[in-house]
Write a protein that binds this DNA or RNA. Structure first.
Lengths: 332, 332
DNA sequence: GCAAGTTAAGCAAACGTTTGCGCAATTAGA
DNA sequence: TCTAATTGCGCAAACGTTTGCTTAACTTGC
């Protein structure tokens, strides 16, 4: 029931096209006098652009969509922050839709909500798409980019170098003098876990160590996975250092270690992967291999922008963001 | 460039209107035979509905929008979870936009992204709208509802009963035998803080205690506000119990207490407000007055639904969700 | 003072759907 | 067999913008 461009046109006594041009700042098609009158009328009538109409005719909008696997990943916020700030720098709007990655049907619904309107690009945050849904995405011809996870195939993504993460975390402990080092709560088979595991093994092999099977406790990056891993290592573990798959896993391991009567870092050192603010609110504060999630968001938006501008597929569409180690109190 | 309803119509040899009716399941206007052919063609052409066109003609969509004040509030996730699940139960889609509540301009942009399209309702998560922006929202004629914060005026909202929160938290400590109880990191003047403060005072007055000024350390609910409050109380504080304004504030206070050499709960008990998962990952685990954020999301969606169905303004548009106390290890 | 160029503004088509209405063909009722 | 009701489907308008084209008026250069 709200005012349209035609109402304004009638009120001012000009054509709708003129109003449109004034309101979208297509300069040089009207006098500043007309412009003023139009703007005044628009204000007065409380005019709101109907984006549906705009998008219908322009077949392009200035909104970027982010599909997030779940509200629970505690770094999603940082990525979104990055996206938001870069997007708003370029005048794009951001809408986020959440999808429980467990269900392909939920994924599909989330994806459709964004595909069915002319968004300028889609960013996927740590979401594992089913084949059908990935196909749907590809066929939509909307630029997209995965964030914080990598792939074997040629899908565009920006993430950390997971091999480097595994390597650097392990190397850090090795340099501190540790030799018997565990890897906790990591998912061994998917791309990310596989690379981190490879990095871990590489670092160990450089000092001629082959990890025993029991050193590697796989899991799903969760708090409880961290707990279970620590439980499996046990009170009398031979390990002196642990690389935890995520902050939450590290905290799980940390708390479980305390329950077992182990002191961190005196009895066992823990280094965490991710480096969210969680690391700083637990005690002892967790040493971490920190990913630059904010930057991932920023770069993600830039990739979308490139895809939009140069219709030709850029060749370098898989980008790695460097990580940094922050030494805190959980290692020695 | 993707297929439209007309392409399907041409391919099958029927009118676009028939295709439309088939695709939106308007039964009784076509034979099942036609329906099959249409659906097959749609699949074959990879047809995607253009929502912009749909919304333009229907002036109504099935999307609910949530405007979130910042990615950082750690309970927003729970509210969104609740919204999501209730929304998808009714076949609505959810889009989220983030807005830094600090800047009225950012707020305005976020609000416009959702107002400028025919969303069925707007949910505002712990966001303090400027007057201008509130007016814009009201004038849009889109149903809206604030979540997790209350107001003096007649705006629709669903939140916890902040008076009860302050009262119950304090009462809990009183019942444990505490008499000198502090209130930390609360924002004294806005609605929420004011009510919690009132509840705190009420509980104390029931046992004939008037809190000293130094017992009440105001702040902004943050980790550092919790830290500062505890610092202000000091190592030799006369307080035996503290009500912290939020989980983060409680953790700040907890860690600061430890730095000061105070043991929780032996030297001082801490009860936290919010009850997010944070309470369970720190040690000692925090006793909390837990808000049912998930339910707020659910109820928020229901309120929107009501507004849509009965165009008449419901009178009972301010709803309070009960809180629960979970006793953990930070109080005794 | 006149042709050429410039400027401000209007006309109308187009975007992809939905839906009220109309029409023909079929079926039912008698 | 004839009228009435029903069924299946098509026509065309409508939603609110944008934008290429046209036009009229005005300015400039000579």
């Amino acid at each position: 029931m709200s005012a349209t461009i035609k109402d304004i046109a009638r009120k001012v006594g000009v054509a709708p096209s003129t109003v449109s041009r004034v309101l979208s700042n297509k300069s040089k098609y009207y006098t500043s006098e007309t412009a003023e009158k139009v703007k005044a009328a628009a204000r007065e009538l409380g005019y709101k652009k109907n984006q549906a109409a705009v998008e219908l005719v322009k077949k392009q909008s200035n909104v970027i969509a982010a599909v997030v696997s779940s509200v629970k990943t505690n770094f999603a916020g940082q990525i979104i922050d990055g996206i938001q700030s870069e997007a708003s720098k370029h005048g794009y709007n951001l809408i986020v839709v959440y999808s429980n990655s467990a269900s392909a049907e939920e994924q599909r619904k989330a994806l459709l909500t964004v595909i069915e309107r002319p968004v300028m690009g889609i960013l996927l945050l740590s979401i594992a798409l089913s084949d059908d849904n990935l196909n749907m995405l590809k066929e939509s011809d909307i630029p997209y980019c995965f964030l914080s996870m990598g792939f074997d195939d040629d899908r565009p993504f920006v993430s950390s170098d997971d091999m480097e993460i595994g390597y650097e975390a392990t190397k850090f402990l090795i340099d501190k003098g540790h030799r018997r080092i565990g890897l906790a709560a990591i998912d061994k088979y998917p791309y990310t876990g596989r690379l981190r595991l490879a990095g871990y093994k590489k670092a160990l092999s450089e000092v001629n160590i082959v990890p025993e099977d029991s050193w590697i406790q796989s899991g799903d990056y969760s708090y409880t996975a961290g707990e279970s891993a620590m439980k499996a290592y046990g009170k009398d573990t031979e390990l002196t250092g642990i690389v935890a798959a995520s902050d939450m896993a590290a905290i799980g391991a940390l708390n479980q270690a305390r329950s077992l009567g182990l002191h961190v870092p005196d009895d066992v050192s823990i280094i965490s992967i991710d480096g969210t603010e969680m690391c700083q609110i637990v005690q002892p504060q967790l040493t971490s291999v920190s990913q630059d999630f904010y930057k991932m968001g920023v770069v993600g938006v830039q990739r979308i922008e490139e895809s939009v501008n140069s219709k030709t597929k850029s060749q370098n569409n898989q980008q790695l963001i460097p990580v940094h180690i922050y030494e805190r109190d959980s290692t020695k």
